[in-house]
């Protein structure tokens, strides 16, 4: 599993790997929001947690179709499937690689963009924690969606359609935790619910992903 993870990370940072695209997209969406809603500090500060969460979610969505599509096109997927690595672990490695190349940079960049949106200082740790807990779940769900749509024409659009409704609970709890943090309310409950969903995804979704991969490999 470590070998596959290392390969995927290496591929992501090399030329053409698309590393940083998600981050740039995140930045652009956040920069566009004030143009849309106006520059008033109070309004921006109020909607900042939600904007950052939605933007992070869209940025994570952007790179999902690359998770399996490239391996499918160049024929790696059947070769990986016949390797000693179980498909469930393959799914987990792929999700982890996606999180490290997409989710983690978003978490790191979020405070910076929070400043742009006048996010109150006391909300910053809550936003960071909620993103750090929530984005791995986004990657896991996305990997599942990517496995369902491997090799389909216009798979990318279909992938968004399938994955976005699945993102709803994570978005709700994640943004709620950040918002409560911003308003000085106790935010532990949504954070714990978010963590529960994340752990559930990590425990169960690789099996669903592997089942989908077995079908698409047929």
């Amino acid at each position: 599993m470590r070998a596959l993870l290392a390969r995927d990370l290496r591929l992501a940072v090399r030329a053409g790997g698309g590393f940083g695209l998600g981050l740039a997209f995140f930045l652009i969406v956040v920069v566009l929001v004030p143009f849309g809603v106006g520059p008033e500090t109070a309004i921006l500060a109020r909607i900042a947690p939600g904007i950052l969460w939605v933007a992070a979610l869209l940025a994570a969505l952007l790179s999902l179709d690359r998770i399996f599509a490239l391996d499918h096109e160049d024929g790696s997927l059947p070769l990986l499937a016949t390797a000693p690595l179980p498909l469930e672990m393959l799914a987990l490695a792929k999700a982890l690689a996606h999180w490290i190349t997409t989710g983690l940079p978003l978490v790191v960049a979020a405070p910076l963009l929070g400043v742009l949106l006048h996010l109150p200082g006391e909300a910053m740790p809550w936003l960071l924690v909620s993103l750090a807990i929530g984005t791995p779940a986004l990657s896991l769900i996305g990997t599942f969606g990517a496995a369902l749509t491997v090799g389909l024409r216009r798979g990318g659009l279909l992938l968004s359609l399938i994955v976005l409704p699945l993102y709803v609970p994570i978005l709700i709890f994640g943004a709620e935790a950040a918002r409560r943090g911003a308003e000085g309310l106790p935010a532990a409950t949504p954070l714990m619910l978010l963590a529960g969903i994340g752990l559930g995804c990590a425990a169960l979704l690789p099996f669903a992903t592997a089942a989908a991969l077995r079908v698409t490999l047929r």
């Binding site: 369902l148 609970p169 709620e176 979704l205 079908v215």
Partner: peptide, 24 residues
Amino acid sequence: DLTSVLCLVGSVFAILSRYAVNFW
């Protein structure tokens, strides 16, 4: 096969969404 898997996973997430929406 794939839609069945999606239906199973989707059902779990639909229930999660229901409670998440209540909470929200």
